[in-house]
Simulated scan of single mutants.
Amino acid sequence: MAHEKQLVRTIEGALIHLFDKDRQIQVSSSEYFSKYIRVLLPYAVTPFSNTGRMFLVNREYKPLGVGDFNEWVDYTEYQCSISDSSYILIRQLPLTDGLKNAAGIFLYQDSTCPWHSQQHMNNYLETLRQLLSILTANMAVSEQPVLL
């Protein structure tokens, strides 16, 4: 079962706390800022557990919101899988700072982390806008909230 609706809500909920009054996100050097992004926002779309399903994960390779790096996670217990139609469209995303390879689709790389510079953050936000658009398009028409 795909979980686009829950993923959109989670991403939008995380972003809302980062926006300033002009709906921009200003990069901060605080540890809290980088941890917030690492845990609550998406880093990659990747397959897990030979299920044939693709999962949207954070920088810790956990479902969005799960931050303990050492914690073992049963991904089937979380609403983080995406539909095949979403995955096909996400594979077509132009990634300014990301990477696509056999391991998955990475929305940014270690050298282009969005908490390192305002330009990387702006590139990441554009990627998130496109990702949210894809996920939202694959939800039921009556359930299409879009924050970005």
Rank of each mutant, 00 (worst) to 15 (best):
L95R: 03
G52N: 06
L148S: 03
I105G: 00
D74M: 10
S81T: 13
L148F: 05
L128Q: 03
D74C: 12
T46M: 12
A137C: 15
I16G: 08
A44C: 14
Q24C: 09
T112F: 09
I25N: 00
E143M: 03
F19H: 08
G13L: 04
K21E: 15
Y32A: 11
F106H: 01
I25L: 02
Q130P: 04
L56I: 05
K21T: 15
A2T: 07
Q109I: 13
G98S: 03
P145M: 09
E126Y: 12
I11K: 00
R59A: 14
S117V: 02
F33Y: 08
T46N: 08
N122D: 15
V73F: 13
R91D: 13
Q119I: 13
Y36S: 07
I11G: 00
T76F: 08
A44E: 11
K62Q: 13
V8C: 14
Q79N: 09
Y75T: 01
L56N: 01
Y43I: 05
I134E: 00
S28R: 14
L95M: 07
N123P: 02
P114I: 01
P47D: 02
K5V: 11
Q130L: 11
S28F: 07
M1I: 11
A2G: 06
C113D: 09
D74W: 12
V57E: 02
R23F: 15
E60P: 02
L89N: 12
L132F: 02
R59I: 10
L93S: 10
S49R: 13
I105R: 00
D68L: 10
P94E: 04
I25F: 01
Q26H: 15
L41I: 11
E71S: 11
G52Y: 06
E126P: 14
T127P: 00
E31M: 14
V146M: 09
E60K: 11
K100D: 04
S29I: 07
D22E: 14
S28H: 12
M54T: 07
V27P: 03
P63S: 08
S49P: 04
Y87Q: 06
E143P: 02
M121Q: 04
Q92P: 10
A44S: 15
S133N: 14
K100P: 04
M1D: 14
E143C: 05
Q109R: 15
L148A: 03
I105M: 01
K62C: 07
L107K: 00
Q79E: 10
A2N: 10
S117N: 06
S117T: 13
L18S: 04
R9D: 15
V45A: 13
S30I: 12
S34M: 11
L107Q: 00
Q26G: 14
E126R: 12
W72F: 12
G104S: 01
Q79P: 10
S83I: 02
R23I: 15
Y43N: 08
L56W: 01
L18D: 06
